[in-house]
């Protein structure tokens, strides 16, 4: 009953935020744009048939065409719209949730209810993610339906992207919440979370720098330290690889989508393959990221539970 009350409250809070509706608008715009794209054999039509061109790369009747279409949606639309723009907007939209919740005078009534603080914290933490679940579900279900019903590409694994998006968001949201319970400042939560996101990506990519420059790799201790360090932060960059990997699952689409193969250098391709391999090791990617999240959430929960309001 208490968890449900917090979920309903978070839902109402989400619907009250302008950013929620901006994201819904962007999702609908993308869906409409996708609807405007059609395929007829090797002919691709854009803007509901107003413009057409021939291309065998996106022929949904071929395996490579379907792979490229899914790749286009996952790598370009989902990763950009949800993975970058969406998550950034979601961080901004949800950063105020805990500062508002823990505001003097706001939390008093809630803390006086028959619920212990640790549970209250966790309930609120998960309830706030209703924002992301709603946005993710809307985006991925609508784009899935367009791929299936308009383009004829059946990729049910693509819907798992909702889970990966929520995971990606949660890796960052835990940082936002920790900052929020410590400072009660939404601005601090946003800035430090975005900074953490950049740091996670840099640390995660650090070993690749050694791969790119073999002379650096000779410094074995530094290289080893960079590799060990890269295990710690959440693997925020893996979202797109996990989404792509699962979008192909259970279908005849089994090729890694390179819709711009000519432009991919050997080195770039090697890096992509490595990342793809990493993404395939989903236990490592998700497990280590969740471990990081659990530690940060426990720290935030402890801070929340020990504080006087």
């Amino acid at each position: 009953m208490q968890f449900w009350a917090l979920i309903v409250d978070s839902l109402r809070e989400s619907l009250d935020r302008k950013i929620f509706w901006i994201l819904v608008g962007l999702t609908l715009l993308i869906t409409l744009s996708m609807l405007g794209v059609g395929f007829d054999g090797e002919e691709v039509t854009l803007f509901f048939g107003m413009w057409s061109t021939e291309s065998d790369r996106f022929n949904p009747l071929s395996d490579i065409g379907r792979a490229n279409l899914v790749g286009f949606v996952v790598y370009l639309l989902a990763n950009t719209m949800m993975g970058w723009i969406g998550v950034t907007l979601m961080i901004i939209a949800t950063a105020g949730a805990f500062p508002a919740f823990t505001e003097r005078g706001a939390l008093d009534v809630v803390l006086a209810k028959p619920i212990n603080r640790a549970r209250l914290f966790l309930y609120k933490y998960f309830a706030t993610m209703v924002f992301v679940v709603l946005q993710g579900t809307l985006f991925f279900v609508l784009t899935f339906l367009v791929m299936w019903l308009r383009w004829g590409v059946w990729a049910p694994g693509y819907l798992l992207s909702i889970v990966f998006l929520v995971l990606l968001f949660s890796y960052l949201y835990c940082v936002s919440v920790l900052v929020a319970v410590k400072t009660r400042s939404a601005v601090a939560a946003i800035l430090l979370t975005l900074l953490a996101w950049v740091l996670f990506a840099l640390i995660h990519q650090a070993p690749n720098v050694f791969e790119t420059f073999p002379e650096l790799k000779k410094r074995r201790t530094v290289y080893a330290a960079a590799r060990v360090l890269s295990w710690i932060p959440p693997k925020t960059g893996d979202f797109v690889y996990l989404a792509a990997s699962w979008s192909q699952a259970g279908t005849s689409i089994d090729s890694f989508p390179y819709f711009d193969l000519d432009a991919v250098t050997d080195l770039e391709r090697a890096r992509q393959v490595e990342e793809q391999e990493l993404a395939k090791n989903q236990f490592y990617s998700i497990g280590s990221s969740l471990l990081f999240e659990i530690v940060v959430v426990l720290l935030a929960m402890w801070t929340f539970a020990r504080k006087d309001y």
């Binding site: 009953m1 208490q2 449900w4 009350a5 917090l6 309903v8 409250d9 109402r12 809070e13 619907l15 009250d16 508002a100 505001e103 003097r104 005078g105 706001a106 008093d108 009534v109 809630v110 006086a112 209810k113 028959p114 619920i115």
Partner: peptide, 27 residues
């Protein structure tokens, strides 16, 4: 039952929703 001093209630709720929300938290 508790009414704190200088309370701040979520502005996005209506009066009836607020009562329902807090009562649900109160089981």
């Amino acid at each position: 039952g508790y009414l704190p001093e200088d309370h701040r209630f979520p502005g996005y709720l209506t009066g009836a929703q607020l009562l329902d929300y807090y009562a649900a938290l109160g089981k």
